[in-house]
Design a protein around this nucleic acid. Structure first.
Lengths: 189, 189
DNA sequence: CAAACTTTTCAGTAATTACTGAAATTACAG
DNA sequence: CTGTAATTTCAGTAATTACTGAAAAGTTTG
């Protein structure tokens, strides 16, 4: 790691470790961290130089980050190399990350469970297993569609909701009272 | 894999793949999947037999699952072996998982960022990096405390909130109007 | 407290994943 | 088109992680 201040270096190393804690590997985590802290777009050679990785490793890492939509590719005037940067808006980053994780972790499981649940249980012992899968399916479906839903909210509202925290309970209680009208349950829309 | 119906086998294999997609390894994912679908607690030998793993591998896998608080150890009367089961309540499982991931993924990063931000920037280029870290810190802190907060809500309320989805916006808007009182911003509690 | 049973540890090995350098491909400028 | 600069691919290798069997440690029971 060349020319990186201890502050930056520490952050980069941390993200490397963190990366390998979930699916993504150390290299990719470090590249992202470097881009995130950089005040200007970097090209692949600069990244390879700064982190002391081979050029090809950087290439693969950037491809991975692009597949996560976590880096933006851009061109600088009068330079034919590709420059990369991390979006500045942390909320956008957070949303992208959540979306991608949903796509990779939740969606395939949901689809597998849907299939498993509609299949008629052939063996006698499968009855119980299917009940369990149904329970998991319903939970993931709820969480999943909530994710998609909340994603539509603008940042302002999202922050407001989060700051409200568990006091949202009061609000829901209040809403509950309002909604007790002839005809029972009623949509808020 | 012995004596597993195709239905169960498919689920187990899926969880194995899924497991290796984030930090946890294939073996651990499969053990958990098996326990989740089982209608009775299983001992280590049964798991090793069913999944065709070595006894020691099962032992390590179970330890890992225990560290995630995803399995419960229990003893059956008249049997001195240890039996394991996955909690039945899917909401509890979901909460545990969220909590553990927060502990492993968010908390260490938060603490690193806190330190990095309070450190006086020594090098000139660190000014920008620190701003970025501050932005990330604030976001993670907000999400993190929201997590902790929401965790306190009972399942009923949580489901209600999720079903509300993005319509929570309306509710917050409404609350906003209510709170416009002399003196400005006012707590809901 | 010894024998039988059960679980854990751990060194060695297998399997997987990450990384590199060289070659191939692609993109562009003259 | 041609030559040059830039990027990607990929086979080989390095590094890491997963898994096993054997031995050690821990538990229970008579």
């Amino acid at each position: 790691m060349k020319n990186l201040s201890p502050l930056v270096q520490n952050f980069v190393l941390h993200f490397g470790e963190m990366g390998s804690r979930w699916g993504i590997n150390r290299t990719v985590g470090q590249i992202y961290a470097l881009l995130y802290l950089s005040d200007r777009p970097l090209n692949a050679d600069e990244i390879a130089e700064a982190l002391d990785f081979s050029r090809s490793n950087v290439s693969m890492g950037l491809k991975e980050l692009e597949s996560w939509r976590l880096v933006r590719l851009q061109h600088l005037p009068g330079d034919r190399r590709e420059f990369f940067s991390a979006p500045e808006d942390v909320w956008l980053i957070f949303k992208t990350l959540a979306e991608e994780r949903k796509k990779r972790e939740l969606d395939p499981t949901l689809s597998m469970l849907r299939d498993a649940v509609i299949t008629e249980a052939s063996e006698p012992g499968d009855k119980f297993a299917q009940q369990r899968m149904k329970a998991m399916h319903d939970l993931i479906e709820l969480v999943s569609s909530w994710f998609t839903d909340v994603h539509k909210l603008d940042q302002e509202t999202l922050v407001q909701l989060m700051k409200l925290g568990s006091r949202v309970h009061k609000l829901l209680e209040f809403k509950g009272k309002l909604m007790i009208v002839p005809g029972g349950r009623k949509s808020t829309t």
